[in-house]
Design a protein around this nucleic acid. Structure first.
Lengths: 210, 210
DNA sequence: GCAGCCATCTGAACGGTGTCAAGATAAATC
DNA sequence: GATTTATCTTGACACCGTTCAGATGGCTGC
């Protein structure tokens, strides 16, 4: 989440309204979901007038951008943590896949905003491909480490990364659909279900055999 | 689409406004995208008052339901067509995966609505798991046919189906992000890219080896 | 054929939304 | 301390989803 800037009695040109707005937005998102996230509601939550946000964001889209941006950063560090505390390269791969899905499941509204923004502009945020610490680049690097004996072509590495990303994203979304509840229970909980599907997805457990 | 009910000079209690509204909605969706799809815009497009839709749909959500429902039906038949005109079981598998992605890419706004509705209610439409002709069940059946020599457990069949569904959905969404344009070109077009990723996803080309 | 009924459609309204222009207020600069 | 500049508020606008009272016209039973 980040530390809220609400503590110091606000200097009455509010200190850092931009931060406060994003925090307010994330609070609403967690408490009431994506449907309740209006600019006016955010302004209310931050105790400012409906027009105040326009001094910090060009429009609602830019506020959503900021929220989504934080979401991607949070995802980056969630995956970095897991990757740090992991063992063999191939276990790292399962761990990183599970970490992605966990993040999506623990922050459903935020995850929704992240991809809604992306879908609206037909583009993931730039930092995803450019920043070496990004979740996406971490996946690529993990695949490379796993395969570093058998040298893999640049292009196959990229394709494998995309494949893994597609699979993880798809799984994250499917897990939220109640259709699969029975199967989850049958396997003894969502975590088992998750790992079972990851295994069927192959690329998360071992090098794809020719 | 479906044949529009616009031909016969409308009997002035309009004939079939429900149909006309869904058609109007799909027209807007195709022409202006999901952001332009308001109830009022649909009513305008169908040349009725803003309140008229409420005699056929309880609220906007129900109209979206109807649109999404048609989308899933269209997906069902798109995949059925491909499956009918296909060769070996394992080729069928690639073909069906490609068909799913093609549908999503050719009807991006409709596909978006289908999943937006699902995300809002945390549920895919019931018909997906119940109707034997549904896209989902077609995937399951195709997997079963491919594996009918090596008998596969009920639960593994279901897991494999879900895995494939996750992968196809994930890929369909990723393909719309401009990040991957360079790679598409490098591989000589989206179709090649698509099939390359499907191949990396393993389950679409051959039985997952133990 | 006509009376009456009922489904359907319209018009006007309400509260909510995103957004903007004009003015008030406080912080920063000189 | 005066002036500039950034920030916030007030009030407005158009659009949205939704509702309700009333107009319209197709259907049913006589």
């Amino acid at each position: 989440m980040r530390e809220a800037a609400t503590a110091e009695a606000r200097p009455y040109h509010h200190g850092d309204l931009r931060r406060a707005l994003v925090d307010a937005a994330r609070r609403i998102l967690e408490a009431e979901g994506v449907g309740a996230l209006s600019l006016r509601a955010v302004a209310r939550e931050a105790k400012v007038s409906p027009a105040a946000p326009y001094h910090h964001f060009k429009d609602k889209g830019e506020l959503l951008d900021a929220i989504a941006h934080e979401g991607w950063e949070d995802l980056d560090s969630a995956m970095a943590n897991v990757r740090a505390s992991a063992r063999s390269p191939s276990e790292k791969m399962t761990a990183i896949g599970a970490a992605y899905v966990h993040f999506a499941r623990e922050n459903p509204a935020l995850y929704r905003v992240m991809y809604d923004v992306a879908r609206d502009k037909d583009s993931l945020p730039d930092h995803v491909q450019k920043n070496d610490d990004s979740a996406y680049c971490q996946v690529r690097q993990t695949i490379q480490e796993r395969n570093d004996d058998a040298s893999v072509s640049e292009i196959d590495l990229e394709l494998a990364t995309i494949a893994a990303w597609c699979a993880a994203h798809g799984l994250a979304e499917m897990l939220s659909f109640k259709q699969f509840e029975p199967l989850k229970e049958q396997l003894g909980g969502e975590e088992n279900f998750l790992r079972a599907v990851l295994q069927h997805l192959g690329m998360f457990s071992k090098v794809h055999a020719p």
